[in-house]
């Protein structure tokens, strides 16, 4: 049970799945399930736009951090990355 609560917390912070996931959660809550479509209300639209913004911000933050940590000399690194077959 405790784990479930945690999962929800993380789901809220998730990135690309943001929009569609919160939709599907709503669907579950409303108990419909079979082929329910997302609400087209103005409020819903506003919510989505807001989430879209949040999403873009999160993605930007992620890309900035990737720029910082991505291995320098990627070309050389990738070229030199050779492993022996295993198992």
């Amino acid at each position: 049970m405790e784990r479930h609560v945690r999962l929800q917390d993380h789901a809220d912070a998730s990135l690309t799945a943001w929009v569609s996931m919160s939709e599907s959660q709503q669907k579950q809550k409303s108990g419909g399930g079979s082929g329910g479509e997302s609400t087209g209300s103005a409020e819903g639209g506003k919510k989505l736009a807001k989430k879209g913004e949040a999403l873009k911000e999160e993605m930007d933050a992620l890309m900035d951090e990737i720029d910082e940590v991505l291995e320098e000399n990627a070309e050389e690194f990738v070229k030199n990355y050779v492993q022996r077959g295993g198992e």
Partner: peptide, 12 residues
């Protein structure tokens, strides 16, 4: 781990 740190992947 970066995705994890940013809360973008679901933990179990």
């Amino acid at each position: 781990y970066l995705l994890e740190r940013q809360g973008q992947v679901r933990r179990m």
